[in-house]
């Protein structure tokens, strides 16, 4: 009898995505296995290309765009602004001593002292305010230029996000995971509906990108925006599509979502900034 009960509970745990026992690492393995099985022809690192990994028809046009990328100017502006000294004589390089080697792959990370998720955008603005400068706006403009430059220097590095064995870190991860799988908005849809279960399908004329590797190409230049945007800008857009009230950029909710989504992409390469439709 005891054996049957154990067997049953094992089956139950395997069946529920929210089983408390599933560690982030278990989730990652299951997540990756789902997508590699669903898209057997896509080499795993190709998921960093978003929808273009699964849509050969639009990929060709995208590759042409990438030859003269619209984000190039953001990288150039970002480099210039990154190297400009703050009023106090310091600069970003003092906050990010390893920036030349590439640092984006380590973000977001969990700061166990403060008990919060730190995103690259958050660290950029903290660097500014610590040095007496005004913070930048979160979703577009200068923050995406600095972000584009730092992402560019990190290209090819494998995403390496950690969830330390810390109650608050695990809680943040689980909050992001819950957001990802929960239905929301008047249209009652979850991120997972569009980017997990139906990834690769068409919603109207758009093919839905797989969530695996979702964060690797940010910030992105989007034709629809006629400019650059951060990951949280995109999150807000996707929340609005289902008539849900978007959260604020860099809110705990979106930081947690970024933490979960980026963790799922561990081991894939950073290839930001990127070009999108």
């Amino acid at each position: 009898m005891k054996k049957i009960v154990t067997l049953l509970s094992v089956l139950l745990i395997a069946a529920t995505p929210f089983a408390a026992q599933a560690t982030p690492d278990d989730d990652l393995k299951a997540f990756r296995a789902y997508f590699t099985k669903k898209f057997p022809d896509v080499p795993v690192n190709d998921f960093i290309n978003g929808v273009y990994a699964v849509d050969p028809a639009s990929r060709e046009q995208w590759e042409q765009f990438e030859e003269f990328p619209s984000y190039q100017i953001a990288i150039d502006n970002g480099e210039e602004k990154f190297n400009k000294k703050f009023a106090n004589g310091k600069s970003y390089a003092d906050c990010f001593p390893n920036y030349k080697k590439g640092i984006k792959q380590n973000y977001p990370y969990f700061d166990t002292d403060k008990g919060e998720v730190v995103t690259l955008e958050g660290a950029i603005n903290k660097c500014r305010t610590d040095n007496g400068e005004k913070p930048l706006k979160w979703q577009k403009g200068e923050i995406t230029e600095i972000g584009a430059y730092l992402a560019y220097l990190s290209r090819g590095h494998k995403i390496n996000v950690k969830v330390p064995n810390d109650a608050k870190a695990i809680a943040a991860y689980n909050r992001g995971k819950k957001h990802f799988y929960s239905k929301r908005g008047q249209l009652n849809m979850a991120c997972a509906d569009c980017h997990y279960y139906y990834s690769g399908s068409r919603i109207r004329a758009d093919i839905l990108s797989p969530a695996l590797g979702h964060t690797s190409g940010f910030p992105v230049y989007r034709n629809k925006w006629a400019g650059m945007g951060t990951l949280h800008r995109r999150y807000g857009g996707c929340n609005k599509q289902v008539r849900a009230k978007p959260f604020k950029p860099q809110s705990d909710e979106y930081k947690a979502l970024e933490y979960f989504e980026t963790y799922m992409g561990n081991g894939l390469e950073i290839n930001g900034p990127s070009q999108r439709k």
Partner: peptide
């Protein structure tokens, strides 16, 4: 897909 409708999805 519905007859007469353009740009239909396939979910």
């Amino acid at each position: 897909q519905i007859q007469g409708g353009d740009l239909a999805g396939n979910i």
